[in-house]
């Protein structure tokens, strides 16, 4: 119960900070829009081709956009030594992590809500498989990126070149999740692959890594 209250306090604080500055949301949105346009230059998105490639492009866009935003997520806490205050607070470090991850999840979901119609328009998409399954794949995939991303962004704080550190660690560790989300999305869009197996892999990935993040965050925060 206490944990829940702490998570909610952190979440409220992050949402309020974002509401006042709107830095990461606008940054991510504009960046994703640019990536969509750049990829349209790289490939010729006819309806048949775009069904094959847009699953990959969508997740690459989200991966890059969220990497950018996540790098900033902890910098806010460093101003005025807020992070040191958090470390001394009697709340568990896992609550701090979970609140931050939930806030980032909400931001990236917001970006997806804008990006999905854009993709449909620019790439002439309509799903040949069961389109409603995307409502399961999108949150699962986003959580996989955001949970690990929030964790490794905090790890990056403790390194010399933190902007570089996050992708270096996040990308190799996210490969199974990325593969699963791209395959599931492409499967749903083309109707050629059964997405069940990949959705199950995503669930396993989310459960395993969320648990690891929650258990290890305290060690990471107090890594001296």
């Amino acid at each position: 119960m206490n944990f829940y209250r702490h998570v909610m306090a952190h979440l409220r604080k992050d949402l309020r900070l974002e509401w006042r500055s709107r830095d990461s949301m606008t940054g991510m949105l504009f960046f994703s829009l640019l990536v969509v346009v750049v990829f349209a230059m790289a490939f010729d998105p006819t309806a048949a081709v775009s069904r094959q490639i847009s699953g990959g492009i969508l997740w690459m866009t989200l991966l890059f956009a969220s990497t950018m935003a996540l790098n900033q997520a902890w910098t806010r806490e460093q101003r005025n030594s807020v992070l040191d205050a958090q470390r001394m607070a009697p709340a568990s470090a896992a609550a701090l992590f979970f609140g931050k991850a939930l806030a980032n999840m909400i931001f990236v979901t917001g970006v997806e809500a804008v990006l999905a119609p854009l993709f449909t328009v620019f790439y002439n998409l309509h799903a040949l498989g069961q389109g409603w399954l995307l409502l399961i794949v999108m949150p699962l995939g986003t959580w996989a990126l955001v949970a690990n991303g929030t964790f490794f962004a905090a790890l990056g704080l403790r390194t010399r070149n933190r902007e570089l550190m996050l992708p270096l660690v996040l990308f190799p560790i996210s490969i199974p999740a990325l593969l699963a989300m791209i395959q599931a999305t492409t499967g749903i869009l083309t109707g050629e692959i059964e997405p069940d197996l990949w959705i199950r892999l995503l669930v396993v990935y989310d459960v395993v890594f969320t648990t690891a993040c929650l258990l290890l965050f305290d060690t990471l925060l107090n890594a001296e």
């Binding site: 690990n148 790890l155 403790r158 390194t159 660690v169 190799p172 560790i173 490969i175 199974p176 593969l179 699963a180 892999l201 396993v204 990935y205 395993v208 890594f209 690891a212 290890l216 060690t219 990471l220 890594a223």
Partner: peptide, 19 residues
């Protein structure tokens, strides 16, 4: 930090393998 990454890598290897 190294030990933390090592735990994540070890969790990742079986998932990579099967996927």
């Amino acid at each position: 930090l190294g030990a933390i990454i090592s735990v994540f890598a070890a969790l990742d290897v079986p998932l990579v393998y099967f996927s």
